[in-house]
Design a protein around this nucleic acid. Structure first.
Length: 512
DNA sequence: CTATGGCACGGATT
DNA sequence: AATCCGTGCCATAG
């Protein structure tokens, strides 16, 4: 189907039945352009004709693609403020059938996305409305929502936590929660005893405990603990609900915290009555899956400014979860986040009014209208590219997403571009400066998926963490060869320094 | 003599 | 065209 051909035919055969037929068909197409466009986008086929529709279109899509969530939101806010043709509506549409649906996830009308299949991740756009949903799954009525259409993308820790726990919080407990949240230190720990808070508010200790427990189980899990140890215990309790954890892990944290943080594995092993190797494995598990300073890096320790500015938490661009958290074989669910609620539209009143407007202003109105529809199209294009990108990445790197660094399959932006049928620079832009959240709660920069050596470095870390005595680089080289990683000795030295691992000679002051 | 880090080169990637 | 990355060579430290 080609637009330019239609107009050629029209010119050549004016007045023929064929031409009138085409003309009506053509205008109909234009009327339904947005829907048509979506369908084209949705099918895996590329549509070069549309992509090159206008250079402005292409350029703007590229710009939107390389924007971070924060920039994108600023852009849309600015457009909404200045362009009367543009309107944001608090409703969501199924990306497949384009009908307004109540919830994201499978569409109740066309049941898109189709029945989950382990190999095919489910991808959908999300405006993160479920942040306002309580953990019991009770939706909060719309009146409880901030009337702003924009989601806070950067906020400080107390606000971030308050927003999460608000639905589960009895209103008379709000003050207590606020007291706790504002008392948190920079690492997210609660430096004051809870009976102090109970006394201050004249309430029984148990009520403060309930509120605190709510906070501790919110993201990042473990904030509001009194110590790194307590934070780890909370995390492991939560983790154990969804997947198996090593038997002694909890006991290790409870009893051997000192040795754990000082990496005194020999000591640790003796106390627990296990081999040193086993002790190292447990320590490895803990460092891979838990975080003693939950406020620092769970959400990415992106500090804005230096010095005294409090740490801020930035939302990832996409969140990946398992469809069924208990079943590691279930399919991945990817929410590609948008920085605003609802859908952008051309204001229908504006569209009607434009016919009646005075001629001298008409040009301006028309320009606004075109500008707005261009923005909407470009935004759809951007979201679509992001969706397809995340789909492909998640499909290829499923094991990495679930199990961590060891399992990264090296890939290049170029190969991905080839598979998606887009230009390499498109991928580069889409990847730059974006992060996603993987099921264990870590933030992963999208660029890491294109790290050529991450998996080898993970293997290197493991070798060194479980070594019986300090191994030299050459010895490590042999071990890596056994695992199928063929790298030069010099390269191992480089990886070591990348991972901040000291040279063998300086590693253990007194090896056993 | 061995282990490791600095420099630089060339090929791949963006 | 610019940048990144793995690797070889060589100097140096132990």
């Amino acid at each position: 189907m080609n637009f330019t051909n239609f107009s050629k035919i029209l010119k050549k055969y004016p007045g023929t039945n064929l031409a009138t037929y085409i003309k009506t068909y053509y205008t109909k197409l234009i009327e339904h352009f947005e829907r048509f466009y979506m369908l084209l986008n949705h099918s895996q086929v590329q549509s070069p004709g549309l992509r090159h529709l206008t250079t402005a279109h292409l350029a703007q899509t590229m710009t939107l693609l390389s924007m971070t969530m924060v920039e994108l939101r600023q852009k849309i806010e600015a457009e909404l403020a200045t362009n009367p043709a543009l309107e944001i509506m608090d409703e969501r549409r199924c990306p497949n059938c384009n009908r307004v649906v109540a919830v994201y996830g499978p569409c109740p009308i066309c049941s898109h996305p189709a029945t989950p299949n382990q190999e095919e991740p489910i991808v959908y756009l999300s405006d993160r409305r479920d942040l306002y949903t309580s953990s019991q799954g009770n939706s909060v009525s719309v009146s409880d929502l901030p009337d702003d259409n924009f989601i806070p993308l950067i906020e400080d820790l107390p606000t971030y936590l308050m927003r999460q726990i608000a639905p589960d919080l009895a209103s008379e407990d709000r003050l207590i929660a606020a007291h706790i949240l504002t008392s948190l230190d920079d690492d997210g720990f609660l430096p004051i005893p809870i009976n102090e808070i109970a006394q201050y508010h004249h309430v029984p200790l148990s009520r403060v405990e309930t509120v605190l427990s709510l906070i501790q189980h919110a993201e990042p899990i473990g904030v509001g603990a009194h110590s790194p140890q307590e934070a780890l215990l909370i995390q492991i309790e939560v983790l154990a609900e969804s997947r198996p954890v090593p038997q002694l892990a909890e006991q290790t944290i409870r009893e051997e915290m000192d040795n754990l943080s000082r990496r005194q594995y020999a000591e640790m092993a003796r106390h627990l009555g296990i081999t040193q190797l086993k002790a190292k494995e447990i320590a490895q598990f803990i460092s891979d899956n838990l975080n003693p300073y939950p406020a620092r890096s769970h959400w990415g320790d992106i500090h804005y400014g230096t010095g005294e500015t409090p740490p801020m938490y930035v939302q990832p661009d996409a969140i990946i979860r398992l469809l069924d958290e208990r079943d590691p074989n279930s399919s991945l669910v990817i929410e590609v986040l948008t920085p605003y609620h609802g859908t952008l539209y051309i204001n229908s009143l504006f569209r009607q009014a434009i016919r009646e407007v005075q001629s001298d202003q008409k040009e301006q109105w028309k320009a606004d209208l075109e500008h707005a529809s261009l923005l909407i199209k470009c935004l759809q294009q951007r979201n679509n590219t992001m969706r397809r990108l995340m789909f492909t990445i998640a499909k290829r790197q499923r094991v990495f997403i679930l199990r961590g660094d060891h399992y990264l399959i090296p890939m290049t932006r170029a190969s991905l571009a080839d598979e998606l049928g887009v230009h390499e620079s498109t991928i580069s832009r889409a990847v730059a400066g974006k992060t996603i959240q993987v099921p264990n709660g870590r933030l992963v920069p999208l660029g890491r998926f294109f790290d050529r050596s991450l998996h080898i470095r993970a293997a290197l870390r493991q070798i060194i963490n479980t070594e019986q005595y300090p191994l030299s680089d050459s010895q490590i080289m042999v071990k890596l060869k056994e695992q199928g990683y063929d790298v030069a000795r010099r390269t191992i030295a480089k990886y070591r320094s990348m991972e901040d691992i000291l040279p063998a000679r300086l590693r253990h002051p007194h090896a056993n």
